[in-house]
Design a protein around this nucleic acid. Structure first.
Length: 287
DNA sequence: AAGAGGCCCTGATAGC
DNA sequence: TGCTATCAGGGCCTCT
């Protein structure tokens, strides 16, 4: 569910709330996430001082003062919540991602700080937490990942070389983390729409001008989404918490059978299935 | 080597 | 109302 912009929003919230704090205790209620939590997980994290919170692609990286790390992936349905434990305001819940109210089920992991409790909730359990002992192991974890769209390496040369002989459709490559890191199904659709590229086009057939558009629009759309606080699709109503706003700006995602938003285009948005994921696009203006 | 497809899991929603 | 089928923002693994 969360793509790069949503994960960045979570990172920013964590940075505000748990940076330079010590983890007093870790409680694991369910070890069976995407990767089973190691028996030593709690002990390794206990008493760690969080020096920084970074992000790569869709991963959150807690950096500890002793140069070890905790890597977090939210999978499809993972959310992180904070409970502030101030005496005068026991009921304050701050939503880091889309749910403003802490769900009662699926709270798998809790981190306790002096004044704050962090709760990881994940119904589908596609997310995971990893303890990484040093920088080298962290590097190793991401060695097969392509650059983020913001990276200087994500340039015309890179795309041209990567796509040589590649028959797979461009939509598939935007989702392929070995090619580019951080883009998921929503933003892949939106990037191709704003680039006026048909998602079914084999990557090797894309022209130079189209590749340039992909590079430019990937950056632009992800930046905008971060600025809007990410996208919230399955939202719960009753809120004062942080929900994203970018979903209101979707041009194609979830707009099956609706009119194309491009002025002077009379097309309607189609939904097709590519590599088992939904693709939304306009047949008329995406060539 | 590239690409297609299955699979991990729960919950919301649509259709009967 | 209550059943079943389908679909969901990710990404790993296996097979051809």
């Amino acid at each position: 569910m969360p793509e790069l912009p949503e994960v960045e929003i979570v990172r920013q919230s964590l940075s505000k709330n748990i940076k330079a704090k010590k983890i007093n205790k870790v409680l694991v209620r369910n070890r069976n996430l995407r990767f089973k939590l190691k028996p030593y997980f709690e002990n390794k994290l206990k008493n760690q001082f969080i020096s920084n919170i970074q992000r790569f692609s869709k991963y959150i990286i807690l950096m500890f003062q002793n140069k070890s790390f905790c890597v977090i992936h939210l999978g499809m349905s993972g959310t992180i919540h904070i409970i502030k434990n101030k005496k005068k305001n026991l009921l304050t819940n701050t939503s880091f991602y889309h749910s403003p109210i802490l769900p009662k089920k699926h709270n798998h992991i809790e981190f306790f700080f002096d004044d704050i409790k962090l709760i990881y909730n994940d119904p589908r359990r596609f997310g995971f937490f990893l303890f990484i002992k040093d920088k080298e192991n962290l590097k190793n974890l991401f060695k097969n990942y392509g650059p983020e769209p913001f990276d200087k390496k994500f340039n015309l040369n890179y795309l041209t070389n990567f796509f040589k002989e590649k028959k797979k459709d461009i939509k598939g490559f935007l989702l392929d983390q070995k090619f580019v890191s951080g883009i998921g199904n929503i933003y892949a659709c939106e990037i191709l729409y704003s680039s006026k590229i048909n998602p079914l086009t084999p990557a090797k057939d894309l022209h130079k001008s189209q590749l340039k558009k992909i590079i430019k629009n990937s950056k632009k759309i992800l930046y905008r989404a971060i600025k809007e606080g990410g996208s919230t699709i399955r939202d719960f109503k009753n809120t004062t918490g942080d929900t994203g706003q970018f979903q209101k700006k979707f041009k194609v995602y979830g707009r099956d059978k609706k009119n194309c938003k491009r002025s002077n285009c009379l097309g309607t948005i189609d939904k097709i299935i590519q590599s088992n994921r939904s693709t939304f696009y306009c047949k008329i203006c995406q060539k």
